[in-house]
């Protein structure tokens, strides 16, 4: 009767029996990690293939530009963008404002607006999500506010907060807040009622119910909200920096355009993309660290 543990009735035992090598290729199983041969090719597939496609595109782009297939001043080749990045970092554009200065300034604005949105949105979303009446009342407001394109509020933000940093942070906060709020509300609402009942049978106080059941259960939703909001923040910032500043990646791109410096526009774009990539990687690392139980089965 104690044999259950040993008979391999677990998911592992079943996977071993049913996954044929051919299937494993398109659907990596737990088994793949066990066999050294699979592990190597799997690693290659995961990091090598994306890199390969990027390299191929860059090579074609560079080659086409070298062959004169398109105008290097409108579509600068990768080599040109790279040297521009270097020029931007050493000389600066406008003179004295290096790439890192632009990046730092953009990052600071996004971070401030994003943090503010998180501080407001997470507690508020949890409260609203746990009250049926509140979520019914709030739903139309959230739907409306979310549908307003953040950048269309730019003139209003400038009127209310001036052309300085406040209006920029306000717009980032606005954009991030609604996306985050929607997700947090969903998370607080979608707690499995069976878990609530189980906790009720285990001497759980209302306070413990919130901190030990509802909050952890909502965490994956909160994380996905944080991820979406961050992406949105970086989208909004470029538009927001179009006015009232000469520092920031958005400002860099818009000024480069007026000088017809497409190489600079591309350099700015690459920097923004780099931000997005690094932060997405950082967040998914943090998520794996904090929510090991919610990890997708690989």
């Amino acid at each position: 009767m104690s044999d259950t543990l040993g008979t391999g009735s677990g998911p592992d035992g079943k996977a071993k029996a049913t996954v044929a090598p051919g299937q494993g290729e398109c659907r990596p199983s737990i088994e793949a990690e066990r066999q050294p041969g699979w592990a190597v090719s799997r690693h290659l597939r995961q990091t090598g293939l994306p890199l390969l496609s990027v390299a191929v595109i860059l090579a074609f782009w560079e080659g086409a530009a070298q062959l004169g297939l398109f105008d290097a001043s409108t579509i600068p080749p990768p080599s040109r963008v790279l040297s521009t990045v270097w020029e931007l970092q050493t000389l600066g554009f406008p003179r004295g404002s290096s790439l890192l200065t632009h990046m730092g300034s953009t990052l600071g604005r996004v971070a401030a607006g994003y943090a503010l949105a998180a501080v407001l949105g997470i507690p508020l979303g949890m409260l609203i999500g746990r009250s049926l009446r509140a979520s019914r009342m709030v739903l139309p407001i959230v739907t409306f506010a979310r549908s307003v394109a953040t950048l269309s509020l730019l003139p209003l933000a400038v009127l209310w907060f001036g052309v300085g940093e406040e209006s920029k942070v306000f717009l980032i906060t606005y954009g991030c807040f609604w996306v985050l709020l929607t997700n947090v509300i969903d998370g607080a609402k979608n707690v499995d009622p069976a878990l609530i009942r189980a906790a009720l049978m285990l001497d759980t106080s209302p306070r413990a119910m919130f901190y030990r059941v509802i909050l952890p259960s909502a965490l994956p939703y909160i994380f996905s909200g944080l991820r979406l909001a961050l992406g949105l923040g970086f989208m909004v910032i470029v538009g927001v920096e179009l006015i009232g500043t000469s520092i920031g990646l958005g400002a860099l791109i818009s000024q480069a355009r007026t000088f017809y410096r497409m190489d600079l526009v591309f350099a700015g774009m690459v920097a923004i993309a780099l931000f997005g990539l690094l932060i997405a990687l950082g967040l998914s690392w943090l998520e794996r660290l904090l929510l090991p139980w919610a990890r997708e089965s690989k």
């Binding site: 069976a194 878990l195 009942r197 189980a198 001497d203 759980t204 965490l219 919610a294």
Partner: peptide
């Protein structure tokens, strides 16, 4: 509900964010 009664559900209703032993300790922590 009261501490004189314990319950086991069809869908084990374990807290997915807690390990087996932490699930068992849930009520003791409370």
């Amino acid at each position: 509900p009261g501490p004189d009664r314990g319950m086991v559900f069809q869908s084990s209703a374990l807290f997915p964010w807690l390990t087996a032993i932490d699930n068992i300790e849930f009520g003791l922590v409370n």
